[in-house]
């Protein structure tokens, strides 16, 4: 993993995070950092919501940043139609590996669609699948 810091969050349409993971390799002051990362991602929602309406691109590179940390977002399809299954995959990172990030988002999106197809999963609810978590972390190691 090249990225020292990465925090990944999936935010549902109601701006509620349904999945979050600290993916960074740095272990120092993890607790505080996690708070700060979530604060940054939470604040970035304002920007993302505006930007998402101005572009048809799904991958929004570096929509927001604070200090050295950059927020990149992958908007799932359907936000134009106010589809209830529109979600933001938000990644807070400090790397510049754009291609890796894009692949990461795409694969996580696929994973997420699989979760959505599970009839027992209520869209918008918290993702608690440990399998999903493992896969996401594996993808992070692979791409980020």
């Amino acid at each position: 993993m090249t990225s020292a810091t990465a925090c990944f969050v999936i935010v549902s349409r109601n701006d509620i995070p349904i999945y979050d993971a600290e993916l960074g390799s740095s272990t120092v002051r993890k607790e505080d950092a996690a708070h700060q990362h979530q604060f940054i991602l939470h604040a970035a929602l304002d920007v993302v919501q505006d930007v998402a309406w101005t572009t048809s691109a799904m991958f929004l590179k570096s929509v927001d940043r604070f200090n050295d940390l950059v927020v990149s977002v992958y908007v799932t399809a359907g936000h134009i139609l106010l589809n209830p299954i529109c979600y933001l995959l938000m990644l807070l990172h400090d790397s510049r590996n754009e291609d890796g990030m894009k692949s990461f988002f795409q694969e996580v999106h696929e994973l997420y669609i699989k979760i959505l197809l599970n009839p027992l999963y209520l869209p918008g609810s918290r993702i608690t699948s440990s399998h999903f978590d493992t896969k996401v972390r594996a993808l992070a190691r692979k791409y980020l």
Binding site: N14, I16, D20, H35, Q38, H42, D46, L82, G124, R126
Partner: peptide, 26 residues
């Protein structure tokens, strides 16, 4: 939720209690 808050959101947020909402860390 700021500007783009749709109608259903408020309702949903009132249902999703503080404890369950995952910004609870913040």
């Amino acid at each position: 939720g700021s500007g783009h808050s749709d109608v259903g959101k408020m309702h949903l947020q009132s249902i999703v209690s503080l404890f369950e909402s995952q910004w609870n860390t913040l």
